[in-house]
Write a protein that binds this DNA or RNA. Structure first.
Length: 264
DNA sequence: CCTATAGCCTGACGGC
DNA sequence: TGCCGTCAGGCTATAG
């Protein structure tokens, strides 16, 4: 699930539920999501502290702890947060649970264990070390920056949008939506895009991500004209009715309309 | 530099 | 019903 819009929704959810409450306990049900840290070390850094604020960069979420340091969260393909009071009937389905002194719990779910939670000293250093590009919704990430970046790359346009070291936040689903709305085939070489196409791509990237956040990243609430609610092989294109095509790019499925997005 | 592939993991689904 | 292969919205390492 989690690309930029999803993680932004998680951030707002965490901000509205979990800030300024004393952390009374941390339960780790699977150490794989911790990377290298031990549960005891994580507990030491969190217990008795409070979350004060959070910031998102691409698909990463960083939560500040009072007294110093951050908690870094990544959600892999199958992660989300849930905040609850009543004892859950299956608490083990959360890979990690953070209990607050008000009796509520913040659960981190990650079915396939592809997500990570770990202490982070400084988000800026983390972003550098992991070679993450600028967040695509950062106000400083303007059309000019985008153009320069894309034109200097030789890959196909879908791979460029999804390359986190070029720009951070876009994954498989939203790249399909952005390309559909910009009427570009995913395999168009990035350095072959002309100025109007680059502008289209940039403005659609911005509007798709912002609108998706406004829809709480819920496909059921997205506009009917979007690809996402119809993103399956053979489904009619919401614009022209032609059957949506499924192609493989980098081992993963990309969906596009063969009519509206003619091949390179 | 770029692409393709496998691997990490679990669970849902379709076909036989 | 049971088994098997495939696929799933991420990222990394490796080979070509």
């Amino acid at each position: 699930m989690p690309e930029l819009p999803d993680v932004e929704v998680f951030k707002r959810y965490l901000d509205s539920t979990s800030l300024r409450k004393t952390i009374s306990g941390v339960t780790v049900n699977n150490t794989k999501i911790l990377g290298g840290v031990t549960p005891a070390a994580l507990r030491r850094r969190m217990q008795g502290r409070r979350f004060t604020r959070s910031r998102r960069h691409g698909k990463h979420l960083f939560v500040r702890l009072d007294g110093g340091g951050w908690l870094g969260m990544h959600f892999g393909m199958t992660g989300y947060l849930r905040y609850f009071k009543d004892v859950d009937e299956a608490p083990e389905r959360d890979r990690l649970q953070i209990r607050f002194s008000n009796g509520y719990t913040l659960g981190y779910y990650s079915l396939r264990l592809l997500g990570r939670i770990e202490p982070v000293e400084d988000p800026a250093a983390y972003i550098r070390d992991h070679e993450l590009g600028p967040d695509v919704l950062d106000p400083g990430f303007d059309l000019k920056t985008f153009k320069t970046l894309v034109q200097g790359t030789r890959g196909i346009v879908k791979s460029v949008l999804m390359n986190q070291s070029l720009m951070a936040g876009i994954g498989n689903i939203y790249s399909d939506e952005i390309l559909f709305q910009a009427r570009l085939h995913p395999r168009v070489p990035a350095d072959k895009l002309d100025a109007p196409a680059l502008r289209r791509l940039y403005t659609r990237m911005q509007s798709v991500l912002r609108k998706a956040i406004a829809c709480d990243a819920d496909p059921a609430r997205m506009p009917r004209g979007w690809l996402i609610p119809h993103r399956a092989r053979g489904q009619p294109c919401p614009r022209c009715g032609a059957p949506i095509a499924q192609i493989k790019i980098g081992g993963r499925s990309a969906y596009c309309c063969p009519q509206c997005q003619p091949g390179p």
